[in-house]
Structure formats: structure tokens, C-alpha cells
Write a protein that binds this DNA or RNA. Structure first.
Lengths: 329, 329
DNA sequence: CGCGTTTACGTCGTTCGTAACGATA
DNA sequence: TATCGTTACGAACGACGTAAACGCG
């Protein structure tokens, strides 16, 4: 058993059992992988895969167990290399950030721009998805850090650092009835209209849905998307009243106007979520320091080593109080 | 970076930085280890050890981090091999059990004898120590399972399976004053004598000490040892009244006699403690099934996979109700 | 016949052990 | 001078890539 064999094994599993594809991904030849796989199976004394003819058909139960452990080994080997790269002050590398569209579009650009200024050789890869997918990516170790938002408690997995708080606003076409009532809309006001909001509102545990349920009001969703820009567009097209993150408000928009909801819905917190068992490259800490400047870098280190309870983190600033220009500097 | 390099690295660290000794332990030559170590350091780009002249002097901070990860890698590699050996129904192997003297001497023999009957090719290695040492061995992955006792809650680390409950008894020379009071001794009775008990009674959190503290009585320890046989011997020699596990009572002993303490001290539970992240060989499960026959083997598996709360385990039988002969069958 | 896997083979790099050398207490 | 680590060298092994054969749809 060698690290190479385990790497090949994982590549094969992650390439849908296509050895040729896996070989390309690890920059090796297909016969090489075939042979190493065979040797590994021989050493272990059982088949990692079932075969139909010559092709791999499925992962055996035992194979799945082995792959699981192999991933841990690979991840720890990567940790050692990351450790080494940090000590050498390597300025090259990659940063994979799994996040939602709203964060990627409105919150992250300045911090990422700042990061790239300090580390021009670091490639940043955004991995968009829904909250569950994002945390799943983190869980499976396929991303370096996740940026997600919750309306209440922090996400259960990993080490969560609070970044900023934000509220939702209502978005209506200019001249819409709701702009004329002279006060912030109530849930009853909203309930009178079809709503346009995030895909996540479809889930029964969404905070929007819960607010309506608790008020005993019906929630009609005319349109949902993950993408705040789409929501804005469709509000402009008159599909209904938008409910979306304040970050997505564009003051210069001629067609639509945002309305404060004044505490109608619970505030949200955006978190950076990390895996405690993963060594971060220096530039990842740099990103965190820029995106969440109110958190002391040493506290992050300490949280990694000893585990800080979530309550011990400082209350994060509100979105509207953030100095985005400073993050990018 | 190879698995071999990491194995050598760990061997060096565990041999007190003596490469020659480490080489013997891994069945390789000293120059081989030297060279691999150098190559690893070269690849990582920093020193794992500080050197005085040619000798290794200390582990660097970064080196400690690497070793920590290397241990995880080694442990997972061992897990894969264990997985494979189980599938092949290998009947050979080793079982390392870290435990206290009392368990090793009185509780384990029948279960181990039974295990050896079923698996004659398995070498069993008892690693004696105090409770803290034992759990430390488990923590550091240097033992397969730990057998420890507590007077209350289960040990905090790992997966704890309750095996049996037991009480402490008093041990006095024949004809001792306490044999003539015609009732079970009270704490006050005991307090009148110097006691002979386990080394662990020296610790302020020991349940014996706590019982005396709570009763406001002084505890005088004339003699302590880890070894119940020694305690018995010194009670026979008249050093004082013994307080020890009922398992250690030897009815055929001519010199001393045991006295029931009748709930004077809290009951103890003996636990098997496992690491959830360690794959056990089939014979280890066999040992568990023999030592704790009231626990369903499948529940152990399930606890490994999903994590069962400690409260969900069945209440273990009392020591005196155990059928030791059956365990050995 | 294309796609993907296995087999065969030659080359190259690496590991490992032996032996000699060097440094330290 | 004994102990422990490094350097040097040769033999053996193993990994890898190229090329060809094989099976399956």
C-alpha cells in the first residue's frame, strides 16, 4: 500500500469508475492506474470494485470502507504539505470557497480582491450551491472553506466564524402599492402579494416560511431562484414582491425599489465555516482576516487548536456598517 | 512523501530520537532511515528535528505537527489493513489490552482464555497501568482497547461499553476487631483504622477519599499499591484494613477475610473503552463478546458507525452473577 | 469499429543493504 | 574508544510510459 495507490484509488472512485479519465486527472497513464489498482487489491486480498467484463461496475462494500479511509489519509497528507508550504511562505496555491450566489456576488468580491492584491499567485475558485450542498462539499473535504448564512443558530458542522449580520428587505417595482402605505410592510401586507424569493424558501424550515406559518398567514411564492439578480429581474417584471438580502439591493436600479422590513423577519448571520481537521494555507487566513476583520487572527488559530465555543465569538457587525473598501485594500 | 517515510519518522520520534534504535524496531537499517528522513525534510522544505552535531536533539514545532498528522495516516493505513485481514478471515494477529492489575488478574483471564481457544494464533498483550495511563495509551493509539473502572460516569474518551458492576469490600486479618461487631462496617468503623488500598485512592477525586471527605472523617492510608495481591499480602501482615475490589477476594485465603461493605461506597462499573476511529479485528470483537456477553455484537457495530449514547447500553450484570466458566468456553 | 481495460516490455528512478567514514562524549 | 549518524556504492526492485492485444457494446 502506497500513497500513490490510494490517490489513484480515490481518483478512480471520483471519476465514476472510469480509469482512463482518472488517469488524466492525476496526470498519469491509464495502464499505470490499472496496474496499481490491481496491486492494491492483491495486497489487501479482496476486490475494491466489482467488474463487468473488464470495466469497473461498482464499488464493493469493503471498497467503500477503504476509500473512506484513503480519503482521510490523502487529506492528512495534504495537511502536511500545506503546513510545509506555509512555513516556506509559499505565495502560490488555490483557495476553494463554497458559497451561495448572494455572498459570491455581493459580499465576497471586495475581500477576494484584497486577497488577490496581497497574494497575486493564488487562484480563487468559487463553488456555488445551496446551503446543504455547500456544507456537504465541506464535509467531503472538497472545499477549503464555506460561506453560508443562517437565520438563527450557526451551522452545525465544523468551526463557524460569524462574519456579519444582515436583514432581508422587500423589493417592489417603483410605484407599487406597498410604496404608498407610508410605513414598513407587515407580514399581512406581504401575504397579500405573490412573493419572489430564494429557492431555500421552498423548504419547510426556511425562516420566511416559518414567519408566515407562525402568523397564520399563507405564503404564496410566484418565483424562486438562488440568484438574487434573477429575483430582482423578475420583481421588475412584475411577478410579485421580492424578499431578499439587503446586500442585493442596488440603489441605482431604476425599475425597483427596496423597502425596509424593520425586524419583520429574523436577522441573518453569515458565517465562515471551516473544518477543524484541515490545515489552512496562510492566504486562507488572510482571506478570513479580510472578510471578517473583527475577528482576531490569533483567535482563529486558538479555535483550531483548542476549540472555542461559538458563543465566545464577538458579535459581528451589520452589513451596512461594513467598510467594503477597506476589505479590498 | 511516502508511507514508509512517515512510518520511519514516527519510529524515530517514538525511539527517543535514536535512529539506530528506530531502525531495529522497523526492521530496517539505520542508513536507510537516515536517508529517508533527510529526503522527507528536503521535500517538505524544513527541519523536522533540531540537531546537535549529527545527533537529533529535539522535535521542532513544525515537526511535531507533521508527526501528529503522520500518526493519523499510519493509523488509517492500519485500519485498512485490519479491514482486509478481517475480510480474509485471518486468524492471526495481536490484541493489545490496556488495563489495571485487578482486571488483568481477576476479570480478564477467563475471557482471554476463551479468546485463545477460538483464536489460538492471536497474541494477547496486556498493558498494565493506572487509569489515566491506560486512557492515554488508547488516546495515543498504542493499544487496541482499554478496560477501566469508574465509580460513576463512564470514562470521557472513546466509546465505552459497560461490562459489569462490582463493589468494594473490606479485607481484614482473621480475628480482627471488625469481624466481631456483627454488622457491616460503617465509614466511622473504617476511619478508626489505617487503610490499605489502591494507589488511585491517593488522588483527591478518588471515590474512597470523597466518601470520607463527605462524611467528615479522616482517611489514613497506611499502604497503597496498584496490585490487589500486594494489598492482600499487606493486610495479612497487619498494616491495616484493606479496601479493594470484590473480585480480588480469595475465599480460600487462610489469613484474611473479606467483609461486605453493604453500599457504604458507590458501586463501580468496569468498561471496555474503544476508539471509534479504529477498525477492530474480528477477534477483538470476539473478545468483547466474551467479556461482555450481555452486549449484542451488532450493537457494538452500530455504535461504531452511528454512535450510540452511553445511556442506551444495557445495565451490566453484577460481578458475582457472572458465569466465568462460560466466558472461557 | 470505437472505447476502455489488460498484458507485455524496456527504461529509469528509487530503495535498500553493506561498508567505510566522521563526529561526539 | 564506543556510540551514533552520514556518505558512498552496487544490486535489486518497482514504477512508469509506450505499444500491442483483448472484450464489449
Amino acid at each position: 500500500m502506497t500513497l500513490t495507490q490510494l490517490r489513484y484509488l480515490i481518483a478512480i472512485a471520483d471519476s465514476g469508475l472510469n480509469i482512463t479519465l482518472a488517469a488524466e486527472r492525476v496526470h498519469a497513464t491509464q495502464p499505470g492506474l490499472s496496474k496499481q489498482l490491481k496491486q492494491l487489491e492483491e495486497e489487501l486480498g479482496f476486490s475494491l470494485f466489482t467488474r463487468r467484463g473488464k470495466s469497473l461496475e461498482a464499488i464493493t462494500a469493503a471498497g467503500a470502507q477503504v476509500i473512506e479511509r484513503a480519503r482521510i489519509i490523502q487529506s492528512e497528507a495534504a495537511n502536511i504539505r500545506a503546513l510545509a508550504a506555509n512555513l516556506r511562505n509559499e505565495a502560490q496555491g488555490e483557495l476553494r470557497i463554497a458559497t451561495t450566489h448572494t455572498q459570491a456576488r455581493y459580499a465576497l468580491p471586495s475581500a477576494i480582491a484584497g486577497l488577490r492584491k496581497r497574494y497575486p499567485e493564488v487562484g480563487v475558485h468559487l463553488q456555488p450551491g445551496g446551503d446543504a450542498e455547500i456544507l456537504d462539499l465541506l464535509e467531503r473535504g472538497q472545499t477549503d472553506l464555506a460561506v453560508v448564512s443562517t437565520a438563527g443558530t450557526p451551522p452545525p458542522a465544523g468551526l463557524a466564524l460569524p462574519v456579519y449580520r444582515w436583514d432581508r428587505i422587500a423589493l417592489v417595482p417603483r410605484g407599487h402599492a406597498l410604496t404608498k402605505i407610508g410605513r414598513a410592510p407587515t407580514l399581512a401586507d406581504l401575504s397579500a402579494h405573490a412573493l419572489v424569493s430564494y429557492e431555500s424558501s421552498l423548504k419547510p424550515e426556511s425562516s420566511l416560511r416559518r414567519a408566515f406559518d407562525e402568523a397564520g398567514l399563507p405564503l404564496r411564492l410566484a418565483f424562486t431562484a438562488r440568484d438574487a439578480d434573477l429575483i430582482r429581474t423578475y420583481v421588475g417584471a412584475g411577478l410579485g414582491v421580492g424578499v431578499l438580502a439587503e446586500m442585493a439591493l442596488d440603489e441605482s436600479d431604476r425599475d425597483v425599489v427596496g423597502l425596509d422590513l424593520d425586524g419583520l423577519l429574523p436577522s441573518c448571520t453569515t458565517w465562515i465555516v471551516l473544518r477543524r481537521d484541515r490545515v489552512l494555507r496562510e492566504y486562507a487566513l488572510e482571506f478570513i482576516a479580510r472578510f471578517a476583520p473583527h475577528i482576531d487572527r490569533r483567535d482563529v488559530r486558538r479555535a483550531f487548536d483548542h476549540g472555542i465555543a461559538t458563543d465566545d465569538w464577538p458579535v459581528p457587525p451589520r452589513w451596512r456598517d461594513l467598510d467594503l473598501a477597506r476589505l479590498a485594500a
